Simulated scan of single mutants.
Amino acid sequence: MLVFEFKTYGKPEQFAAIDDAIRTVQFIRNKCIHFWMDNPKSNKYDLNKQSAILAKEFPFADELNSTARQAATERAWSAISRFYDNCKSKIAGKKGFPQFQKDNRSVEYKVSGWKLALDRKSIVFTDKKGIGKLKLKGTRELNFYQPDQIKRVRLVRRADGYYVQFCISVERQEVREPTHQTIGLDVGLESFYTDSLGNKVENPQFYRTGARKMKRAQRLVSRKVKGSSNRHKARVKLGRVHLKISRQRKDHAIKLARCVITSNDVVVYENLRIKNMVKNHCLAKSISDAGWYQFRIWLEYFGRVFGRITIAVNPAYTSQECSLCGVVVKKSLSTRTHVCQCGCRLDRDHNAAIIILKSGLGTVGHTGTFALDASNASGESTSILVGASLLG
């Protein structure tokens, strides 16, 4: 599944209609959550029936396309099923009980309610909300795909405008020559990552860099009267600063992950639980700013695209164990050099990257993994457990 995004242009009344559709989606989702709370034994099909019931009861809900209403109920069931899955797996801490949504920013249509122009330069939304024809501007080319390959169309509101996303049913596969290289990655805060060859990539720290503009924009919001138009404008400026930082972090993760995957046949990294790590209030901001989880997600995605092997290993003792003799040398976070009695003296992160690579290569069943099918060798569902990318 590919997702192509285009900036959209229209009149103010069209954007007001989009906002109305977005509020309607939020209303339907919250109504479904409330229905499930009153009827805990209800299932996915019971929630789907609620979309038709709400359309008959509320005229503004009937104005929204039927497939968009169904997509809203699917969002509600997604939150409910995730809560059930967390309870069954008995994860520690909160289980994610479904909450009422307050800041929905998108509306999703399925195969009806929209019509793409022949030149693929505009799109018309045909439901009763009155969105109408919107111009599209982007770098992606939709002419390569048939209209029946577009399974979903999503309208997204962001701080800098409105966007249209096309979800296209196509499997992306690219063929590259084997590099005969394996690498282990140790992510950190001083450097974004250190590989098993000793190479380091600088941590860009986009949040820290944009902190000055962010503080100034936040002060402007605080000075304005609540509910005023000037406060709304100040909030939009603050949102654009946050949006730019998130885009910078995403772009950095995509480019770096693609470079790592295309340069190596096997990539080994730590199976870190970022959710637990950010509980340390001293390092939470720096860890969140680094974007390790996003980098890992793109590593796994490009691993499937290029047919590379990605392995997530247990992070326990990777920074304490000696890469030469295997002895555990305890050290604090402030100790940046690994010194062992066997004579091994390495940078702490370099030593950890070597241990990560050895742990990945020593996974049970690794023999002959270069001959495995790429769909079994890497992917989101194959990197949850240690060596799970080789279970196929």
Rank of each mutant, 00 (worst) to 15 (best):
I297L: 11
H366G: 08
T24K: 05
K275I: 09
K121V: 11
A353W: 02
F166E: 05
N351G: 02
K90C: 14
E63Q: 14
S323W: 01
K224L: 09
H180N: 15
V3P: 06
I384N: 12
H242K: 12
K358Y: 10
K94R: 14
G96W: 01
A217L: 07
K237F: 04
F370E: 15
H252K: 09
Q294T: 10
G93S: 07
V268Q: 11
S389M: 01
E300R: 04
L272T: 04
G387C: 00
I22G: 06
N104F: 01
V241A: 11
A388S: 15
P178H: 05
E321S: 13
I91Q: 13
F97P: 04
Y162W: 10
V364S: 15
S169V: 09
Q205V: 06
E13C: 09
L272I: 10
K49L: 11
T262M: 06
A217H: 03
Y9K: 12
R336Q: 14
V175P: 08
G343P: 01
V170Y: 10
K224F: 07
R219T: 05
S42M: 12
R219F: 02
I355M: 05
S323F: 03
D20M: 14
V268N: 09
S375F: 15
S78D: 11
A257P: 04
S51I: 00
A211K: 14
K56H: 13
S169P: 08
N39H: 15
R235C: 13
D195C: 03
L189P: 13
A52K: 13
L2C: 01
G96D: 04
G188K: 09
E141M: 09
N104P: 00
P147G: 02
V175T: 14
Q101F: 10
G239F: 02
C340R: 07
R336Y: 10
Y193S: 03
S229L: 14
I355C: 03
Q50G: 02
K11P: 07
I254M: 15
K128W: 02
D62M: 11
G239E: 02
C340K: 09
W292I: 11
Y84N: 06
A76T: 07
Y269Q: 00
F58G: 00
Y269P: 00
D251E: 07
Y45E: 08
K226Y: 03
H242Y: 08
K110G: 13
Y145A: 01
G360F: 03
Q14G: 09
L185W: 08
G96M: 01
I354V: 09
K110Y: 08
R219A: 05
T73K: 03
R240S: 03
L372D: 12
D347T: 10
L116C: 02
I254N: 13
V201S: 03
L2E: 04
R157S: 05
E171H: 05
H252S: 12
D103W: 06
S359K: 15
L116K: 00
L357P: 05
S122M: 02
C340Q: 12
A257W: 05
F97Y: 15
S334G: 11
Q173N: 14
L238W: 00
F60E: 06
G360D: 07
Y293A: 13
D85Q: 11
